[in-house]
Design a protein around this nucleic acid. Structure first.
Lengths: 144, 144
DNA sequence: CGCAATTAAATTGTGTACAATATAATTGTG
DNA sequence: CACAATTATATTGTACACAATTTAATTGCG
């Protein structure tokens, strides 16, 4: 039985998904370059803008990232004076992340990004929500 | 005007997309580990299984990857004896990629992967096609 | 209490991604 | 034909992503 058709690139979900994820981070790049942050750093900052003072673990749970990714990324954000890393007194294993002044101010500039991206995507509000809902549905199904 | 709600992680399309792309490559990992290849290497091999003897450029256009990514990746596939890299005689700048015997045989094993993934995703054929079509639609809109 | 088990980050190693630059071959134009 | 412009790949440097291991602190159990 010739089953090889299933292996065609566009036959599968994985490739368009892989491609669009890359393309979309590419859309953010010019805006994020202006703020001197990367896409992953932007995600971490969004988590902190929602709630300051979270632990590495909490950030990792929200972004599905482990310490191998976060530790160096957070150190780079610290070097750029956007955040501070402080070990918790009650439990020295835990590192809490706090926004510095520059990190807080970045939020104001970043606020304009989502609408600029939506403009570039040129999707109606409905299309956007529909796609996001579909993806969320699958995510919930495959996540532990 | 308080615009900060727009910056919430799940308010935006980008994060679910980023997350699901990572999760889905994670679904492939156990199967690809058995074949001793990575997800990106799997994509390259799929391109070659469809048509052998393509140039680095052609592969890059199909996968939206540049030589900075492909050159080392292809060298790793060559080290594992899955492919061979040969400079074209008529134009020494061009490198053509050919499947070795082991690379061709890998296709047989890989043929089982798509159905296994679909099983894990637990999506109906319709849901799958719908999502893929939506993504494809956006991709076509944002790609040059 | 004492120590094994657990937990939180950090580290190490491999493999993408991608911008920027370099190298080498080919093409096009005066 | 010479040489500037173009093209294809390679290289360099930075930044993820993640598995596996390590380190250090804390917890829980006998």
């Amino acid at each position: 039985m010739e089953n090889s058709k299933s292996l065609q690139l566009n036959q599968q979900l994985c490739f368009p998904l892989y491609a669009i994820a890359k393309e979309i981070t590419g859309l953010y790049r010019p805006f994020l370059d202006e703020l001197d942050i990367t896409y992953s750093q932007y995600l971490v900052l969004m988590v902190l803008w929602e709630q300051d003072g979270q632990t590495v673990n909490q950030i990792g749970e929200k972004l599905y990232l482990d310490s191998g990714t976060l530790t160096p990324l957070l150190k780079r954000l610290e070097n750029k004076k956007f955040i501070s890393r402080k070990r918790k007194k009650e439990d020295e294993r835990v590192v809490e992340i706090f926004l510095d002044e520059a990190g807080k101010q970045l939020k104001t500039k970043a606020c304009e990004i989502p609408s600029k991206i939506q403009e570039k995507l040129n999707l109606s509000q409905n299309e956007l929500i529909e796609l996001k809902t579909d993806i969320q549905k699958i995510l919930n199904r495959i996540l532990p």
